[in-house]
Amino acid sequence: MENKKQIFKQIKSKYFPLIKSLQTGLLLITGLAGYMSARCPVLNISTLLALTGSLLLSISGSTALNMWYDRDIDAKMPRTSNRPLSTGETKPREALIFGLFLSVIGISWALVLDPLYGVVVFAGLFFDVVVYTIWLKRRTAWSIVWGGISGGMPVLAGRVLGVGHIDWVGIALAMAVLFWIPTHILTFSLRYHEDYQAANIPTFPSVYNNQTTRLIIAVSSVLTALAMGLAAYGVGMTWGFLRLMAVLSIGLLALAVRSLTLPSERITFGLFKYASLYMLSSMLLLFAAGF
């Protein structure tokens, strides 16, 4: 009994932080929403559970691999310096094996479930780990575009599993996430500008300036709202849901414009949080529209 407790405690402190539960949870919800947007599969519980399991494992795996690769820069940034890989609580080899194990199981499960769905899930992992983290993150501020593309893959994968092919609604949903990522990441890089500088990571605030970054955030917020609205229309949402989505989008735009015209730390933080809530709410609406 004591031994079991010890193992659980170890998993909680050594491995659980490697999967960034909030971020993984949000991406998983986008995948489920993409699936539910196909409007029929709610009756197919086994597929829904398999989607949840394979996506959760794949996203957690790719996040753990990112953490493993970025352990040196995490140690340099105050915000991330207490992560288990930075503190030495988790050994790099353990994190690598953990990440590879989750990824292989997740991708294999996805491929068995549906080959096209598996390919999209794999593309998400490949863009995130190889293209974004290993290749571009330390070279260019524009790496976030690839981060955005990989972020859009779970919702596209869910949609693909629901309808059986890649359609324009799935692309629009993925675009909405792609455009949302800059709003999310750039507000973060504005807030933790010094952290990223300490780790020598190029970000928009350091390569360009804060005002240009805020302009990009505002533009990407507009594009997020447009892509999400288009997708919601394509899914066939009722007018009531569309109105609600429009209200949430206007809130996002208003905050982005406010951040551009009267910038402050508080508004930047508010925009960062609101953007996450916006994505979560939009996905829950898509989810609800499936019933």
Binding site: F269, K273, Y274
Partner: peptide, 25 residues
Amino acid sequence: YTVSFGTLLVAGLLLIILGFEGLEI
């Protein structure tokens, strides 16, 4: 009604996020 309840909705979310300091804007 949408404008009214929409403003209420966004204001509620912002209060949750920013706390009562948000009222100072």
